[in-house]
Nucleic acid binder design. Structure first.
Lengths: 349, 349
DNA sequence: TTCTTCACCGTTATCGTTAACTATTCAAGC
DNA sequence: GCTTGAATAGTTAACGATAACGGTGAAGAA
């Protein structure tokens, strides 16, 4: 009879029926009282609340989900949670949605497009109330997201922009990223400026476009030899840099599409016996942990990451409340800023 | 009538009853067929499977949970998912459990003990099938976990060790961390060896203990002035280092309890005009991203992080299958290794 | 023939909760 | 006294699935 009193952690706890029986009322009344409905008297509500407390009652969220068709769960799909960008975005997101009573079901797609697709379908069939997707899908497929839109589950994309599609999204202003980086080099006096481009996803493409735009705007020669492709990792940045060092004339400055490639570029320079920034300047983008103290400190472009996650959360919550079809066109764009450190300087001579 | 055919993504899809009606069988038969029970004829099973396919049927996992009392969800609680250690552990964990058909419900406690407790309770009352907890709880409370154990939900602790408690856990061998770091300095010839200790959680305590043990084993003076407390962040490492530099005689080498504090120590040395490693050696622990290229590259202790997560997943899955009470005493310990880089050298003169 | 057994499938109840409707009470208004 | 209508509470039927048990028919054993 002293069962359950004071037990906060309890798997198969009391149900509303238990409370109802003990109080001699119906389960419906208990349900109403617990949800704070106006249709129960204050006296009854107090009795129910007190009894629930005594029995250590915790509502069964799945039973509730079954009938309300809401789960209070937000599905999150990222290509790699161990990447600081996604980890920080996820953190900001979790902060916002958990405050609103939602939980995060996390899926790591391991950069695998098939796994990503399976995870999205799983989340949909799990009836999550909303989705946040940092997709690894490159140019292939707005169609996946169009299909998702048909399911009427609100979703927000992270850092992917599909022209002509009206998806909710939170993105970095990547044109501005490219502009800031390139113009920083231009302002230092460089005219032979190379670019290490990332894989075919929107951030990389936009940064590349802004690089070209900036050069043209300043009437600086665009040399196709000075654009090399990388895969957003250190190794490919190193390789691309070696390729650039083999061109002649060789560039005096490089804009690397992200920090790992920038670090790879620094490695290549060191191996080639070049001093940074005396012989060559390097600017990258991302401000990853560790870019504070490479040798030399990498000049880079920064943007708020947890803030992106928080914005994604807010956007999603708003979309959930408004009932799916409203606000269906909003893209929240975040401004990057330049962090001048030690890997850039005016050209020598 | 052509409703649903070929629609892969669909929130309110067909139910087993729909399939049953269409085929003129009972819902039970459909349920059995879909689960691959032996109690249906091959012919019926094929018809059901085919029809399910056509209707784009996806089982409602919450309805199933309600009756099976299993959710296929693993709850994960970390103090800070944006910290690379927890992010990588989570990744390894997700890999293992998702392969077994489980999903990860992620909670970030934001280093807040109260939030952490609330999250654990929420997860328990959500009837997750298992829990993985990287607790921020310091010396306060094995009791939280004892209570959790009463709930019969299997759980695994990450990198926290409670002496005399039999919890499942996956830990770094922190005594070995402390030993490797300290003996590395001893072997270089140092005798004036300081330690920047972390907050009162088991990794920090164990590293500290191993530091003391190693000194005694080598008959090296233990100077209480040379042990300072930090908070596992850069700033506190910097402050602790300044304090150490103020002692006399002053130490020729420092073992920082983790990498951020080690980086803080490097900053302090630079500000004090000391050269590392010429004037003073620094070894840390953690091998965080960015410790590859501080200036100078930080000598540190490394351990496998995703591997820890995978081990936690395996341990948890095993515990779930065995039915809670088995294997209730296992702690899986991972060996660290020394990464000698550029911040340590023999003492000068 | 009759009984047993097995393969297959259906019925009913249940998991814990809420939606939608139905009752009851009591006070106000005619 | 009768109607009206809040306020409060109860009843019934879902939500979508599975557990437990019951039934049926055919093959084989007695």
């Amino acid at each position: 009879m002293k069962n359950g009193v004071g037990v906060a952690i309890n798997r198969t706890g009391a149900t509303i029926v238990d409370i109802a029986r003990k109080l001699g009322v119906s389960a419906m009344t208990v349900s109403r009282a617990l949800r704070g409905s106006q249709e129960v008297s204050d006296r009854t509500r107090r009795r129910v609340l007190r009894c629930a407390e005594e029995l250590g009652y915790k509502p069964n969220r799945w039973a509730r989900s079954l009938v309300t068709r809401q789960t209070s769960i937000i599905g999150v799909v990222v290509p790699d949670i161990s990447h600081s960008f996604f980890a920080e975005v996820t953190r900001g997101l979790e902060e916002v949605v958990s405050r609103a009573g939602y939980n995060v079901l996390l899926c790591d797609s391991w950069l695998d497009v098939e796994k990503e697709k399976a995870e999205i379908e799983m989340l949909v069939s799990s009836m999550v109330d909303g989705l946040v997707i940092a997709s690894e899908q490159s140019e292939t497929s707005p169609q996946v997201f169009r299909k998702l839109k048909d399911s009427k589950i609100p979703f927000v994309l992270i850092d992917r922009f599909f022209p002509k599609q009206s998806f909710l999204a939170v993105v970095v202003d990547d044109l501005e990223v490219g502009r800031l980086a390139t113009e920083h080099l231009v302002e230092l006096g460089h005219t032979r400026i190379a670019h290490i481009q990332g894989p075919p996803i929107s951030p990389a493409s936009l940064r590349h476009r802004a690089y070209l735009d900036a050069l043209r705007r300043h009437q600086i020669e665009v040399n196709r030899q000075w654009v090399r492709k990388g895969r957003f990792d250190i190794q490919s940045g190193r390789e691309a840099m070696f390729a650039l060092l083999g061109t002649k004339p060789r560039p005096t400055a490089v804009f690397a599409g992200n920090d790992p490639m920038g670090i790879g570029a620094l490695y290549a320079c060191r191996e080639a016996g070049l001093r940074v920034p005396a012989d060559i300047s390097v600017v990258a983008a991302g401000n990853i942990e560790g870019a504070h103290h490479p040798n030399p400190f990498l000049t880079t472009i920064d943007w708020p990451r947890e803030e992106l996650g928080r914005a994604a959360g807010s956007l999603l919550l708003a979309s959930i409340q408004e009932g799916s079809d409203q606000a269906t066109d909003r893209v929240k764009k975040f401004a990057p800023r330049l962090l001048v450190r030690q890997s850039t300087a005016p050209p020598s001579a």
